Amino acid sequence: MIVVMTTQSLAAVKAHFSQVIDEVAGTHERVTVTKNGSPVAVILAVEDYESLMETLEILSDPRARSDIRQAEELMAAGEVYGEAEVRAALAARRR
């Protein structure tokens, strides 16, 4: 989960690069880097980057998008399952 996004100048990031990296890795904070006042890059934790790439991959798959839409429609219609029902269904699949 990405918690916060800060903006820092390139000069500030260069001066405290190791600290910026530690904060990004430890807090999942995104840092937008600016050069001459304009955003030029974003620093984020590898885990967050990989999560974004996975999300893009899923959303680029038409079948996955269709499945997600269908699930949202079922949820909106009240067709939901409790934890016990889901666990029972998963256990039955493993047999």
Rank of each mutant, 00 (worst) to 15 (best):
S9K: 02
S38E: 13
M5K: 13
K35T: 14
P39N: 05
V13K: 01
A41N: 02
I21D: 03
L10A: 14
T32K: 01
V46R: 07
V3I: 11
M5D: 11
A25N: 12
A15P: 02
S18R: 05
T6F: 11
I21N: 05
M5Y: 03
S38P: 02
V13W: 01
K14D: 15
K35I: 15
M5W: 08
K14I: 12
S18T: 11
R30H: 07
G26Y: 05
V4S: 11
A11P: 03
V33I: 06
I21Q: 10
M5V: 10
I21M: 06
K35L: 11
T32F: 03
V20M: 06
V24T: 11
V3W: 10
H28K: 09
V33H: 00
A12N: 12
L44E: 14
V4C: 12
E29Y: 02
N36E: 08
T7D: 07
I21H: 04
A15K: 04
A45C: 14
V20K: 02
I43T: 03
A11K: 07
V4R: 08
V46T: 12
Q8G: 05
T34M: 04
V33F: 00
V24M: 00
T7W: 05
P39H: 08
E29C: 07
Q19L: 13
L44D: 14
E23V: 02
Q19P: 03
S18C: 09
Q8E: 15
L44T: 06
A12P: 07
V24P: 00
V46D: 15
V13G: 05
N36L: 05
V40G: 06
V31Y: 01
A45K: 08
G26T: 14
A11Q: 09
V42P: 01
I43W: 00
